[in-house]
Amino acid sequence: MKKEYKIISELIQSESKTLDVGCGNGELIKYLLENKTINIRGLEISKKNVQNCLSKGLPVIEGNAENDLTQFPDHSFDYVILSQTLQAFLRPEKVIGELLRVGKKAIVTIPNFGHWKVRIELLLKGTMPVTENLPHEWHNTPNLHMCTIKDFFNFCEKRNIEIFKSLALNKEKITNINKSNLKYKNLISELGIFLINRK
């Protein structure tokens, strides 16, 4: 999803210090380094991915976001990015807390479980949804805590997390999410992108 990278890149100020949590094989880091003057690090759990990143010369640390974010001091990054990984954590709430401690701001993107295709899968077929964006079956999915755009919106509101910007991505089209169109965006968007901060 190159479009997602572009949006993230636009949310980040130049010359800022950024941490990409769950950076995978470093694609986003590479994209940001090529398109921005930025100081960026990565944290990744898979050895293979870490080796891959380091092979490209990217400063990535092997570690688990649920335990290893503790090593970073408070507000040591301007931005902490969590791209499509939140659903894979055992304790997403704890991770969000850590993101907002380590980063002055956090950018969280979530694959939207409220998308109509997902809803139809369950409603009509009666089986756990399998879609292009969520290709795993119930028994082999790494996703432990799927949520919808609306869920995340409500989550932030309840926990005094300020949403600076909330964007919806659908078929390469980006739109703003706000309270009045939330229901609709939650139905038609594949991905939600949130720029958040502790109030």
Binding site: R41, V50, L54, L58
Partner: peptide
């Protein structure tokens, strides 16, 4: 990391 140094680790 505590001093924001540029570090990779595996």
């Amino acid at each position: 990391n505590a001093i924001g140094a540029d570090v990779g680790f595996v």
